[in-house]
C-alpha cells in the first residue's frame, strides 16, 4: 500500500511542477509575440501612411466631383461620376490600350528573356561577357532607355527610321499606327535584363543530371527544351508573367517621355491617363475612378494568372 501512496505523491508532484512550467512557457510566448509586433510596427506604419490610407481616401475622391476651379467646394455625386467615367470613350480607350500594351510586351519579353538565357547558359568561353550585357538593362533607368529609343526613332537621324525605310515620313512615335508598338519595343528592351536574370536563375536551378539523362534517353535538343527545360522552368515563367504583367500595368516613364499618351490617345494607358487627369486636367475625382478601375484590372489579371496559368505550372523538384 505504501507503494501506491508513493506513486500518488509522485503524480501530485509532477502535476505541481508541470503547471508553473506551462505558465512560464505562455509568458515567454506572449513576450515573443510582443517583440514580433514591435518589430512589425515600422513597416506597418509606412504601409498605413503611404498605401492603406491613400487607398481608402481614393474611394472617397471617386464619389465627389472636382470643381472646375480650385478653391470651390467639391460636390458629392455618389456613383454618378463612376458610371459616367466607366462608360466614357476615353476610359474604354485607355483600358484597351493598356491591354494591348500588356499583350505586346509580356509574352515577347518572356520569350526573348528565355531565349537569351538559354543561349547564355552554354558553357562557352567569354559567355560571362554576354551575361553582363544581357542583364545590363536592369541598371538602365527608364529615362535613359527612353532617350536612347527616342534618338533611334528620330525621323531625321534615327537608325531605326533608316532601317525601317521610313525616311521622310512622320515619326514612328507620332504615327497612330505605330506609336504603341514603338513604346512596347522600348519597354521590352528595358525589361529584358530582368527577364533574362530571372530566366537564367531558373535555368541554373535545373539539375544537369536531367539533361544528361535526356541526352542518353535519346531526346533531341528541341525535345529536351520542350520536355525538360520548359516544364522545369514553368514556375519561373509564371513568376515572370506575373511580374511582367504588373510592370506593364504601371508603365509610365517611357510613355511620358516618348509620346505623352498620344498620338490621338493611342498610347494613353491607364496609369498615364490618371496622371493626365490629376496634373493636366486637375480632375481628382475622375482620376480616382481610373485608379479604382486599374486596381480592379490588376486584381482580375492576377486572378486569371493564378487560376488558369498556374494550373499548368509544375513545382515538383
Amino acid at each position: 500500500m505504501t507503494d501506491t501512496g508513493a506513486a500518488e505523491r509522485a503524480l501530485e508532484l509532477a502535476e505541481e511542477t508541470r503547471l508553473p512550467r506551462r505558465r512560464r512557457w505562455t509568458r515567454r510566448r506572449s513576450k515573443e509575440a510582443l517583440l514580433a509586433y514591435a518589430l512589425l510596427t515600422p513597416a506597418f506604419v509606412v504601409f498605413v501612411v503611404f498605401i492603406f490610407y491613400p487607398f481608402a481616401r481614393n474611394f472617397e475622391y471617386a464619389l465627389y466631383k472636382t470643381p472646375p476651379f480650385p478653391g470651390l467646394p467639391r460636390t458629392y455625386v455618389g456613383f454618378d461620376q463612376i458610371g459616367d467615367v466607366l462608360s466614357s470613350h476615353d476610359f474604354l480607350n485607355s483600358v484597351w490600350v493598356t491591354i494591348l500594351f500588356l499583350l505586346y510586351t509580356v509574352p515577347i519579353g518572356i520569350f526573348l528573356g528565355l531565349a537569351l538565357a538559354v543561349l547564355a547558359h552554354q558553357k562557352l568561353r567569354g559567355v560571362n561577357a554576354y551575361r553582363t550585357i544581357f542583364s545590363s538593362t536592369v541598371a538602365t533607368s527608364v529615362a535613359a532607355a527612353s532617350v536612347i529609343f527616342f534618338t533611334l526613332l528620330n525621323p531625321q537621324v534615327g537608325l531605326f527610321t533608316y532601317w525601317l525605310g521610313r525616311d521622310g515620313e512622320i515619326s514612328v512615335l507620332l504615327d497612330p499606327k505605330t506609336a504603341l508598338l514603338a513604346v512596347s519595343v522600348t519597354t521590352i528592351w528595358q525589361n529584358l535584363g530582368l527577364s533574362f536574370i530571372v530566366m537564367s536563375a531558373g535555368l541554373q536551378a535545373i539539375p544537369d543530371d536531367l539533361y544528361e539523362a535526356a541526352r542518353v534517353d535519346g531526346a533531341s535538343a528541341w525535345r529536351r527544351f520542350w520536355r525538360v527545360t520548359v516544364p522545369m522552368l514553368s514556375p519561373t515563367i509564371f513568376f515572370a508573367s506575373v511580374v511582367g504583367g504588373i510592370l506593364a500595368f504601371r508603365a509610365f516613364g517611357q510613355i511620358d517621355l516618348l509620346t505623352e499618351g498620344g498620338p490621338n490617345q493611342k498610347t494613353n494607358v491607364l496609369v498615364y491617363a490618371i496622371y493626365r487627369e490629376v496634373f493636366r486636367n486637375n480632375n481628382d475625382g475622375v482620376a480616382a475612378v481610373y485608379a479604382i478601375a486599374l486596381f480592379l484590372l490588376v486584381m482580375m489579371l492576377t486572378f486569371f494568372q493564378m487560376r488558369f496559368l498556374e494550373r499548368r505550372v509544375s513545382y515538383a523538384r
Binding site: 543530371d209 536531367l210 515538383a316 523538384r317
Partner: peptide
C-alpha cells in the same frame, strides 16, 4: 550519347519530376 545504344542510371536517379 543517344546513338550509342546505352542506358544510364544516375546517382540522383535524374527522374523527370514533372
Amino acid at each position: 550519347p543517344k546513338d550509342r545504344d546505352i542506358a544510364m542510371v544516375f546517382q540522383s536517379y535524374a527522374l523527370y519530376p514533372h
